[in-house]
Design a protein around this nucleic acid. Structure first.
Length: 329
RNA sequence: AUGUCUCUGUAUA
């Protein structure tokens, strides 16, 4: 009933850990979770890397007799796999009597994200119920470890491709530095969504083809594709590499115009862009208003200061970072 | 009414 809707809302929101505390509250008051409750809570544990709570949620699922529900089971496999607890995930996976396609895919993706492509592949080969996500997951894995030969071979063999398949093989080429290949795929793909555009933009930005990135963004705008944070971040990175302050400023203005809020990632990209373009004051200004600064944000600001010869200030900032409880890496 | 895949931020070489 309504407990479920609240937990669902929290788990989909920005603070999924609140869904977990809400779940404990629910149990504390004597309400019984049902088969819809668990996937929401487990997802919240997955996203906030709360593996300890996850284990306790797992225990409750067992007590409720819901551990064999396919939605609950696959959510648990995904939770362990996503948090790199591959042995726990696999144990659960092997114990399940009826593994559905989502459990298989989650287990394979767990191996993929840890670079264990051989283990992923052996599961994939044993699968009878492969769907487009299984194929996409494997293609992504080969792209991540730089094996474009296998990635392409699966891409060609797969019976059905969706836009994610195309985006995945595109990103794989980008990951391997094959800009021409990425370009070719981008132009050949039957449909492009915002992720396709973002992947191509990032490819240009990472390979130093900043002007191509800016040109692609203009094309994107003329086609009325709505940008996301990833779009803006790649653009800022392109501007930073060019040292093009005026272009960077116009991206910043675009953000304000379209009411794009400054997340930690976007904020760090802005700090970096202003620093690389030589406007250290604006970089400091953005940095100072960033909430929940993480180690990457600090590193960016420190490097920006150091780059411009403000060694003393950089060291001061380093001390401040440590004092405010961020561990240097 | 619920679960799985793709794109984004820092340094050095």
């Amino acid at each position: 009933f309504s407990w479920n809707s609240i937990i669902r809302g929290l788990s989909a929101g920005r603070k999924p850990e609140e869904a977990v505390s809400f779940f404990s509250e629910m149990l504390h008051r004597g309400f019984r979770p049902n088969k819809f409750t668990f996937p929401f809570v487990i997802k919240a544990c997955t996203e906030s890397s709360l593996t300890r709570s996850g284990v306790s949620v797992h225990t409750h699922a067992v007590k409720s007799g819901l551990e064999s529900n396919p939605y609950v089971q696959s959510a648990l496999v995904h939770m362990y796999a996503d948090n790199k607890k591959l042995d726990d995930a696999r144990k659960l996976f092997d114990q399940s009597s009826e593994r559905d396609v989502v459990s298989w895919n989650s287990m394979i993706d767990g191996y993929v994200k840890c670079g264990e492509l051989d283990l992923a592949r052996s599961l994939f080969d044993r699968m009878k119920c492969r769907d487009v996500i299984s194929w996409n997951t494997m293609i992504n894995g080969y792209g991540l470890i730089g094996n474009l030969v296998q990635a392409r071979s699966l891409f060609e063999k797969m019976p059905l491709r969706n836009v994610v398949s195309w985006n995945t093989i595109l990103a794989g080429h980008a990951q391997c530095g094959d800009v021409e290949g990425a370009c070719r795929i981008f132009s050949e793909m039957p449909h492009r969504d915002v992720v396709s555009w973002n992947a191509m933009l990032a490819c240009y930005a990472h390979s130093g083809q900043s002007n191509e990135a800016l040109a692609l963004f203009n094309e994107m705008r003329s086609l009325k594709v709505k940008p996301t944070d990833a779009t803006i971040v790649s653009l800022l990175s392109a501007c930073g590499h060019l040292g093009a302050l005026d272009q960077g400023e116009s991206v910043h203005a675009y953000m304000k115009e379209h009411m794009i809020g400054i997340s930690i990632v976007l904020g760090t990209a802005l700090v970096d862009m202003y620093a690389k373009c030589g406007d250290i004051c604006r970089a400091k200004g953005i940095f100072s208003v960033l909430e929940h600064k993480d180690v990457l944000a600090w590193n960016t600001m420190i490097a920006g200061l150091a780059m411009h010869g403000h060694a003393h200030e950089a060291l001061q900032l380093f001390d401040e970072m440590v004092e405010t409880g961020t561990r240097p890496d």
